[in-house]
Simulated scan of single mutants.
Amino acid sequence: MFQFILKRLGLAILVAFTVSFISFSLLFLAGDPAAALAGETASGEDIEALRHLYGFDRPMMVQYGDWLFSALRGDFGESYYFKLPVAGLIFDRLSITMTLGVCGIAFALLTAVPLGVAAAIRPNSLIDRIALFLSVAGQALPSFWFGLILVVVFSIKLGWLPPSGTATWRHFIMPTIVLGYYAMPAIMRLTRAGMLEVLSSDYIRTARAKGAPEMRVMFKHALRNAIIPVVSLAAVQMGFMLGGSIVVESIFALHGAGYLAWESIGRNDLPTVQALILIFAMFYIVFTFLADVLNAWLDPRMRSS
C-alpha cells in the first residue's frame, strides 16, 4: 500500500507541474497581456512601458520560473484590478466555494447512491423509473435555469429561502441543490450499473446460498465493489464543482472563487486568473489522488497491479 501511494503521489506531482506550465503558457499564447492591460486606446509607448513594468519583455521560461517559485511559497503576486495580494484575495473567497462544493457533492452522493442501489435491487420497478427520470432531467436541465426556477418558487413566491448572500446556512440550500443535482445523474447511473453487475456475480450467489443476511450481502459484499468507480467519479465531480461553480455563484450572488474567476477574466487580471487556474487544477489532482488511495483500500487488486 505504501509503494502504491508513493507512485500515485509522484504521478500527481508530475501532473501538477505539467498543468502549471500549460496554464501559464496558454494565458500568454492567447494574446499580448500588456496590450490587454493597456486597453484599445493605448499608444505603443504605453504598451511597451507596461510590458517592461510587469516583466513581460523577459523570456517566457524566466517568467514561468519566477512565477512558479513564488507560487510554491504562496505568493501569487498582486492583482492588477483589485490592487491586493492575489493569495489573500483568493483565500477570502475560497471558503465560500469550498463550502458550496462540499455541500453539493454530499447532496449528490446522499441522493444518487441510495437511488442507484434501490433501482438496481428492483429493476424496471417504480423506483427504477423514478431514478431514470431524475437522471434524464438532471442532464437536460441547465443549471442557470434550474437555479432561477428555485429562486422564483422558494424565494419570491413562497418566501421560504433567501435568494442570495452567504449570511446563514439557509443561503446555501438552493445553491447546494442546483450544484449537486447536476452531478446526480452520472453517479446514479454508475451506481445502478455497478450494482446490477455485482449482484449477478458468483460470489453474491454464494453468499446468499450460505444464508448471509440480505443487508450484509448488499452493503458489505455488493456495494463495496460497486462503489469503486463511483469514488473516482465523485472525485472528478468534486473538482468540477469547485472549478465550475461560476454560474451558480453568479445566480445566487455568492462571491466565491468561481465568481472571482469570472471577474478576473473580464478585467484581464492575469495574476489572479493564473493563480485560480493553478488552484482549481490542484483540487482536481488532490481529489483524484485521494480517490485512487481509497479505491486501493477498497480493492486490494489495484494495489497488486
Rank of each mutant, 00 (worst) to 15 (best):
F2V: 14
Q3C: 08
L9N: 06
I13D: 01
F21A: 11
G31H: 04
G31Q: 03
D32P: 07
G39V: 14
E40L: 14
T41A: 15
L50A: 05
L53V: 10
Y54F: 15
P59I: 15
M60S: 11
D66V: 10
F69S: 13
F76Y: 14
E78S: 12
I90R: 02
S95H: 14
G104T: 09
I105R: 01
A108I: 09
P114F: 04
P123H: 09
L132V: 10
V136R: 03
A140L: 02
P142S: 08
G147A: 04
V151H: 05
F154N: 02
K157H: 13
W169A: 14
I173H: 07
I187T: 08
M188Q: 06
L196G: 01
S201V: 03
I204H: 02
R205Q: 13
E214G: 02
A222D: 04
N225D: 03
P229D: 04
V236N: 10
M241H: 03
G244V: 13
I246Q: 15
L254M: 12
E263Q: 13
I265G: 01
L270G: 07
Q274F: 03
L278R: 00
F280I: 08
L290V: 13
A291W: 00
V293Y: 02
L294D: 02
A296C: 06
W297M: 13
L298Y: 14
D299C: 06
R301I: 03
S304T: 15
